[in-house]
Amino acid sequence: MTAVAGIDIGGTTTQVVLCAPDLGVLDRLGVPTPAAEGGTAMIGAALDALRLLLDRTPAKLLGVGVGAAGVVDARAGRILVASDSFRGWAGFAVTAAVERALDVPAFLDNDVNAFLRGEVAKGAAVGGTHVLGMTLGTGVGGALWLDGALYDGPRGAAGEIGHVPGFGDLPCTCGGRGHLETVASGRAIAARYGARTAREVAQAAHRGDPDALAAYEAAGTAVARALLIAAGLLDITTCVIGGGVARTWPLLDPSIRTALAAEPPVSGHPLHVLPARLGEDAAAIGAAARAGAELGVGTPV
């Protein structure tokens, strides 16, 4: 049996999947990310998890895909910019380290790009040709799938919808002001309500708390406005939304739909907005899909 592996390195958890060439998940494992210990430790933890999966599910490993937070040089397989949550990560040569350890080809993607690859390959956006992927978590990430292929732009920053301005005047984590992230991220929802986490706000909203409901309504309305901007520029037909905030989809969906109904896309065609289907596996499966595509096995995503 042959397999490709996908690794999603997040600030808290690293998710590893072992997939058949058709991207069916053979086994999975999540482990803590030693983000404060540097790139070598983070890759080491991921590789240890992958070796455990290979011991549990013997297969000939063909290649490995890695999805990583931050700005990456996918062609060189290197992290360019990382947040303060990661020590010794910016500049780290990810694919070289994986190839050296496993003696198989390795490929690197930004984690949101990997998320979108996963959802197009096996999730909510299967068959989509013009898709915006959006993750609503601590921050807001985005990725573009245009004409049936990932589009990352000449500098790797295409699709970064979370840092589109025009959403008020609050400071953003990137140093700008009024970005979508300042309204629609988990951090922003919590701050608007005065809670520590968006989960607390969601719990209050489910109890009918009007201020909590207003925080989610503002987030959903802002997301819809960002989608209309993307649709107007790129004629996307579908948006798939994941991340921790999207797990409370019933709180977001009504305001997104209301805003889109009030001002539909300029094309006159409805924009399909879907919750992600693959959960915490999405970016890891997408990373595996990238590896399979590069190696010419399985689904060409």
Results as ranks from 00 to 15, higher is better:
7 I>F: 04
8 D>P: 06
10 G>C: 01
27 D>V: 04
28 R>V: 00
29 L>F: 00
33 T>D: 10
43 I>C: 11
45 A>H: 08
46 A>G: 11
50 L>G: 12
55 D>N: 12
56 R>S: 12
57 T>C: 05
62 L>G: 08
65 G>M: 03
71 V>E: 03
74 A>L: 02
91 G>A: 12
92 F>Q: 04
99 E>F: 01
99 E>L: 04
102 L>P: 12
103 D>V: 14
107 F>T: 04
107 F>W: 09
109 D>M: 12
111 D>L: 01
114 A>I: 09
119 E>L: 08
119 E>T: 09
123 G>M: 05
126 V>R: 14
128 G>M: 07
129 T>H: 11
157 A>G: 13
159 G>N: 10
171 P>N: 07
183 V>A: 07
188 A>Y: 02
191 A>T: 00
193 Y>C: 03
199 R>I: 14
200 E>L: 08
209 D>W: 01
215 A>H: 06
217 E>M: 05
219 A>F: 08
219 A>T: 10
220 G>F: 03
221 T>E: 11
221 T>Y: 02
222 A>F: 04
225 R>H: 14
226 A>P: 02
236 I>H: 02
239 C>K: 09
252 L>E: 04
259 A>F: 03
265 P>T: 02
268 G>N: 09
271 L>H: 02
273 V>E: 00
282 A>Y: 00
291 A>C: 12
297 V>F: 06
300 P>L: 12
